[in-house]
Design a protein around this nucleic acid. Structure first.
Lengths: 348, 348
DNA sequence: GCCCGGGATGTTAGCGCTAACAGCGGCGGG
DNA sequence: CCCGCCGCTGTTAGCGCTAACATCCCGGGC
């Protein structure tokens, strides 16, 4: 007879009434406190189930100060890496009972970063995860004065603050070593943007491996992650090759640039890997279907997300954790091959 | 002398004290209520600025019942489309003063979908946005009984519930018409997965345009968005062509498949566009750098996100809005060209 | 048999904010 | 000259929950 529609949100005392206990006992059951009689606990749990009760997070957040939400701020989510990182993080956060609130920065300036973190603070997230591959972003993060734990993902470099990342240096060494093993006397490199720590780490790995092998370290070509810049690099390399320089292997800081480079080499009449071997970084879904299929380095984003959340949880618990960088895997495909005898250009 | 560190969160009464008013007046200023003397308003605003005060969203949410958060649930964020949609949504939501809480489904099952929406309900988001390109997801959404407004993005088809989407049919017609205009007698089509409404819409557009032109409608080849399936389609088309079938133009439901198809045609010794013209859908960043650069259809994801949020806001305000689908643009590049005379295969 | 300790439960007081109402002046009209 | 209304501001009462304290009851030790 009473006009009780499906509306009028359920609250804790509704459950309490049905179970014949006080709302505080319901709270205790929900939060898994000890000192609740097994029989009472069962009764409350049944009431919760029957009513389909869900605690109000806002009220809980107000009193505990914790929203069980992690803020994630990033730029360039349309890039493969960041998108995958987001997926990995969300999955790991969800598994840990947290939800993820996302902000995609329009630009990696200190102001935008500070604003994003500010909004997260106001939103009372428990922690902030920042994908900080760009220096601007990293710097901005340093300037942000926040009472909450901040964990940077993929910031690489000198890590004073808690951070997780993929071992870019090792990945680059893997790629370079692979090419040297194939018999190339040296390996050329097309970098990512200079203000990206990731890009610099890949340069470092490439250089280290060449040095370790006693190989000549050529001057880098500079790219900016885009296929367009890879295309330009391809043109320039072809030209230098025509001028007599020995160029038989190229390692590019990402697959998108490799794609552009392949297009340029093709137009220049150079064949891959017969004339030049090409190795990329990222393992885009399309990498196996390029012409030719691209040898590349894969990063484990699921693992990265997992460790990032683990680190956040540790910080939240007051523990300090020191995590190793996530390892990478080399995927050998047709774009890299041995230097054919007699195919060397005119020589020095 | 007092031990006041940078901590101890700022609350409204701190601002009130500094401005010499009551906390309620501060609240009024923040929420833009009328009936506050200009001078008082100014004093309060200054205090807010000086203190760097930000209202606590949990407390506000508790009393207003609104968290100013929108939940977004999606699958396959590593695909270009979904990732771009996310970016568009986040931007639009932020502009409207909302934040976006993201869930990436592992699989598009009803259970997973219901679970995600449930979590959003518990989180008291104000509305749920669902990227529902797959039937499973759409069905799951229908089953979800939720007290909050639910807006589907890109679900296409018969829209009973509020939804926004890109005009897939028109996009596919654009692509098909372009190829017919180039002189091709008909256009072959490689579809996306059968359980994707988007994919079916593209089929429909392709078929409609062929029918309108009185052209023969060939049997579709079936793909699943992956480069791999495009590659397989390319092999089959090449074979059928060798068998004497007239195949001079292909429209693929996305760029990734087009990429795979280009690789297959290349291996088969077929030249694009001399032997076969190819048109994709999506305009991936790498599309201009494929061999040859890919003619494709671009969707406006920023606009899509904008309209989705607009629709959510309208629903929240109790208004009902009927939005037109977002238009698409054809980008003509080198992969599509006229049918060269005398290049026709042996004929029927 | 009485007192004490501790497990199980209930009661109370906020968390920081907004909405509703109360109060308090000043100005215009009767 | 006084009343009433209105524009501005302050006061009070929750929103739904958890933490701290209060209460009750039962069993064991002296």
């Amino acid at each position: 007879m009473e006009p009780e529609g499906p509306s009028r949100a359920l609250v804790m005392s509704d459950v309490a009434a049905r179970a014949g206990v006080s709302h505080q006992t319901v709270s205790r059951v929900i939060n898994g406190h000890p000192n609740v009689a097994p029989q009472t606990r069962e009764r409350v749990e049944r009431a919760i189930r029957e009513l389909g009760y869900r605690p109000n997070t806002a009220a809980r957040a107000l009193v505990t100060g914790s929203t069980r939400t992690i803020g994630f701020v990033t730029v360039n989510i349309n890039q493969y890496g960041p998108a995958q990182t987001l997926v990995g993080l969300e999955r790991a956060a969800r598994a840990a009972g947290y939800s993820l609130s996302v902000t995609v920065l329009d630009e990696a300036t200190a102001d935008a970063m500070r604003d994003a973190v500010d909004r997260f603070v106001a939103q009372s997230v428990d922690a902030v995860l920042a994908l900080a591959t760009y220096d601007d972003a990293v710097e901005a993060l340093h300037l942000v004065h926040t009472p909450l734990p901040l964990v940077t993902v993929q910031s690489g470099g000198a890590l004073e603050e808690p951070a997780v990342g993929v071992d870019q240096v090792a990945g680059a060494r893997l790629a370079t070593r692979h090419l040297l093993d194939l018999g190339h006397r040296t390996v050329h490199h097309v970098t990512g943007p200079a203000d990206s720590q990731e890009a610099r780490d890949r340069v470092e790995g490439w250089r280290a491996e060449l040095a370790a092998a006693g190989a000549h370290v050529p001057v880098c070509l500079h790219g900016d992650w885009t296929p367009s810049s890879g295309y330009a690099a391809g043109r320039r390399l072809a030209e230098r090759r025509r001028a007599g320089e020995e160029i038989t292997a190229v390692f590019l800081a990402n697959d998108q640039m490799a794609l552009g480079l392949l297009a340029a080499l093709h137009e220049e009449g150079l064949e891959v890997p017969r004339d030049i071997s090409v190795v990329g970084f990222d393992d885009l879904p399309e990498a196996p279907y390029l012409t030719p299929p691209l040898t590349t380095v894969r990063q484990d984003f699921a693992e990265l997300g997992h460790r990032a959340v683990e680190l956040v949880l540790a910080r939240l618990a007051g523990r300090d954790l020191h995590l190793q960088p996530v390892p990478t895997v080399l995927l050998t495909r047709a774009s890299s091959g041995p230097v054919p005898v007699g195919r060397m250009p005119a020589g020095v």
